[in-house]
């Protein structure tokens, strides 16, 4: 089981402080990162995966110091990040997108012991198999989300960062994809950090939830407790 430990994480964009001393621990399972637009969810995920430099703090994935790991090495230390807006490479085919994901797996994770290979991904998302030769820009929003999740799985991650996977998707599609993520966590021991504005859907599959408000952690508790905490829900989640 993988543990992500973050302490005092602080990030500035010029004069704007986007994260201010964020600390939490993810001991496995699904941790939802909730908060209104602009709370710092995307910044947190981008900092963990090396796309945004931190001003201060630490972030460790088991023995790896994430803040000293370049973004292009993240898949090789077991971290996969599906960015906001999904990050489909539209000019490549579905299969090329997936193959690219598999190329990023660290060598030791490839081959015999692999939990996720192309066959498995096509089993999980049959529609991707049907469309394997099509350019990715022909896919619907839901299919794109399946593609980027499948592509991230092929890197054999121990932790998966998902940034607003529900954005722009029909509730039925969101439910389908979230159920599948829950299944991957239970069956394959995947750890997930799920940034969402859609608190209701996220809490329905999460084990724990972290609420960000203006770059600070305002709540860190079990998903069930948060779902029942009307005060917090009203204050930070608008629900």
């Amino acid at each position: 089981m993988t543990t992500l430990t973050v302490q005092g994480l602080t990030v500035d964009y010029g004069p704007v402080r986007a994260l201010d001393g964020v600390g939490f621990e993810v001991p496995g399972g699904i941790t939802a990162v909730l908060g209104a637009n602009g709370a710092g969810k995307t910044t947190l995920l981008r900092t963990l995966s090396g796309l945004v430099p931190a001003r201060a703090g630490t972030a460790r994935l088991d023995a790896t110091d994430l803040l000293r790991t370049p973004a292009e090495e993240m898949t090789r230390v077991g971290l996969a990040h599906v960015p906001e807006g999904r990050g489909v490479i539209a000019e490549l085919t579905v299969e090329e997108n997936l193959h690219l994901g598999a190329l990023g797996a660290r060598a030791a994770r490839r081959g015999t012991a692999s939990r996720f290979d192309l066959t498995r991904v096509y089993e999980l998302f049959p529609v991707l198999g049907e469309r394997s030769g099509q350019l990715a820009h022909t896919l619907s929003g839901g299919e794109r989300q399946m593609l980027v999740v499948g592509r991230a799985l092929l890197a054999e991650p121990s932790i998966l960062l998902l940034d607003e996977p529900s954005l722009g998707l029909a509730p039925r599609v969101v439910a389908q994809i979230f159920a599948l993520i829950r299944e991957l966590v239970d069956r394959d021991g995947l750890t997930v950090l799920l940034a969402e504005q859609n608190a209701r859907s996220a809490l329905s599959i999460a084990d724990r939830a972290l609420v960000l408000g203006l770059g600070r952690v305002v709540a860190d508790e079990s998903a069930a407790a948060l779902a029942g905490d009307d005060r917090l829900r009203h204050a930070y989640l608008g629900a």
Binding site: L51, E72, M74, G87, E91, H99, L103, G104, A155
Partner: peptide, 22 residues
């Protein structure tokens, strides 16, 4: 594979980095 990585880098450098492409 190298050609695929090169095309991906040209089309979308940030996503390519996240996928482990140097």
């Amino acid at each position: 594979d190298v050609g695929l990585r090169m095309r991906a880098s040209a089309f979308n450098p940030e996503v390519s980095r996240l996928l482990g492409v140097r």
